Computed example of a mutant assay.
Amino acid sequence: MAPPRKALIAVTSAHAPLYPDGKETGMFVTEALHPFNVFRKAGFEVDLASETGTYQADWLSQQKDWLPEEDRKVWEDPSSDFRKKLDAHLKPGDIEAHEYGIFFASAGHASLIDYPDAKGLQNIASTMFTDGSIVSAVCHGGAIFPGIINPKTGKSIINGRTVTGFTTKGEEEEGVLDTIKSWKKPTIEAAAADAGAKYVSPPGPWDSFTQTDGTIVTGANPASAHATAEACVEAFNKL
């Protein structure tokens, strides 16, 4: 029997200075909003969740170059379906993993801080993977994968799988690699390698790019959020 047509989008609870003048990273708005739209359009119920039940939006993700006007209207409207779900989002203790067919880890650089230790979200994703559901991440969302364990192997669910995610080259281009190192957290490429996955780079750091390996679906960057969610739906429909 196919898993339920219901999607859970994870958002980061972390925030930290990253940009000029101490402006902070947090949840990258379109990396949660675009998948929300894709899943709803495909007939999924959608919930959002974070490890602590809190979120802060990434500063850069709210700037004009990163938040198109149509998205901005939704983001700035507290009565929009997306904002209502986001502002009342769930914690792991509120969630029954068996009720969902897609787990999607949205991102923002802040994901590098909390996702590696987000045991509640990781356990939900592990249960869903065991159920045969789709487990997915975009951009820095892949920071959650090393801790999502396949109970049959005792290893990460991406061990032996092909994945993508934000490039180390992209971190260098943004000038934030030293900050990430100061957090004592691995880049997405390093985390994938440590988990035994084969990491594949997009043609360029900012090009839309996705990878599907069985029930594992990954995307490279903010531009890939929409396409990654569509790839999740496509993989789900094959279950």
Rank of each mutant, 00 (worst) to 15 (best):
H34V: 05
P35Q: 05
P35K: 02
P35M: 02
F36S: 00
F36V: 00
N37Q: 14
N37D: 11
V38H: 03
V38W: 04
R40H: 09
R40I: 06
R40F: 01
K41N: 11
K41H: 03
A42C: 07
G43T: 06
F44L: 02
F44K: 01
F44H: 02
E45H: 13
E45V: 13
E45A: 10
V46I: 05
D47W: 07
L48W: 00
L48A: 00
L48H: 00
A49D: 00
S50Y: 06
E51K: 00
E51G: 00
T52N: 06
T52R: 03
T52K: 07
G53F: 09
G53P: 09
T54V: 12
T54K: 12
T54L: 03
Y55V: 11
Y55H: 12
Y55D: 11
Q56G: 12
Q56W: 07
A57C: 09
A57W: 12
A57M: 09
A57P: 08
D58H: 05
D58P: 00
W59I: 04
W59P: 01
L60D: 04
S61A: 12
Q62F: 04
Q62K: 09
Q62N: 09
Q63L: 06
K64E: 15
K64P: 07
K64D: 11
D65F: 10
D65P: 06
D65V: 10
D65M: 07
W66I: 01
W66H: 10
L67W: 01
L67T: 04
P68I: 11
E69D: 14
E70M: 11
E70P: 08
E70A: 13
E70C: 06
D71K: 12
D71H: 12
D71Q: 07
R72H: 12
R72D: 08
V74H: 08
V74E: 15
V74F: 05
V74G: 09
E76C: 05
E76L: 11
D77G: 09
D77R: 10
D77E: 06
P78K: 10
S79E: 13
S79V: 14
S79H: 12
S80P: 04
D81I: 13
D81T: 14
D81L: 14
D81M: 13
F82C: 08
F82K: 03
F82Y: 07
R83N: 08
K84W: 10
K84N: 13
K84I: 15
K84T: 15
K84V: 13
K85W: 06
L86F: 01
L86P: 05
D87V: 08
D87E: 15
A88D: 15
A88W: 11
H89V: 10
L90K: 14
L90N: 08
K91C: 07
G93S: 14
G93A: 15
G93F: 08
I95V: 09
I95D: 01
E96V: 15
E96H: 14
E96Y: 13
E96M: 14
A97H: 13
H98V: 15
H98Y: 12
H98Q: 13
E99T: 15
E99A: 15
Y100E: 07
Y100N: 04
G101E: 02
I102W: 08
F103C: 02
F103A: 08
F103H: 01
F103E: 01
F103Q: 01
F104R: 04
F104P: 03
